[in-house]
Amino acid sequence: MTLSLFFFYLFAIVLVGAAVMVVSSRSPVHSVLFLILAFFNAAGLFMLAGAEFLALMLIIVYVGAVAVLFLFVVMMLDVDFAELRQGFLQYAPIGLVVGIILALELIMVAVGFVVTPEVASASAVAIDPTLSNTEALGRVLYTRYVFLFEGAGLVLLVAMIGAIVLTLRHKPGIRRQDVGAQVARTPAMSVENVKVKSGQGL
């Protein structure tokens, strides 16, 4: 218990610290790196809570794809962040007021939130405590929701086809690597013995 508590505080403190650094660091590249750190710590928190599937998804999807994409965009686009920050102090009071109102609303919702017993018991899929949650999700996705799951897969396929159709250009005259041709090359095709006459060179 104490060990998990120790790790909870460790992850939580690093997570909050990293989140603050995302907003406050000067270089956008550092911000993205801190964002990745925050994601890892959030994944650790999920792991402690027993949601190992969610933890791994967070790392694969957010760290593996989204954050790397961010990093590329930040490095490739020359965005002048100093210019974007201008007027920060000027607008800070309004932002602060809006933020406080939102925070109050969130607190009110969180305090007043009650799950009625009927709703809790009317869950579409009963929770089986003996299964790990990856297995439980897999069982639901491939049985009860298989139609929607496969349909979502087709939507993603369309997205992929669309991205390729709209962006891929076949430029003529570009030399591509042809592995077959490389492998099929024999010494006889590429090496030539030349009899060099002495004193003349080639």
């Binding site: 349909g151 087709l154 939507v155 369309v158 086809i161 669309g162 159709v165 709209l166």
Partner: peptide, 11 residues
């Protein structure tokens, strides 16, 4: 269904 249709139509 709607998204599958629409996404293909956008492209």
């Amino acid at each position: 269904g709607l998204e599958l249709q629409s996404l293909a139509l956008y492209v």
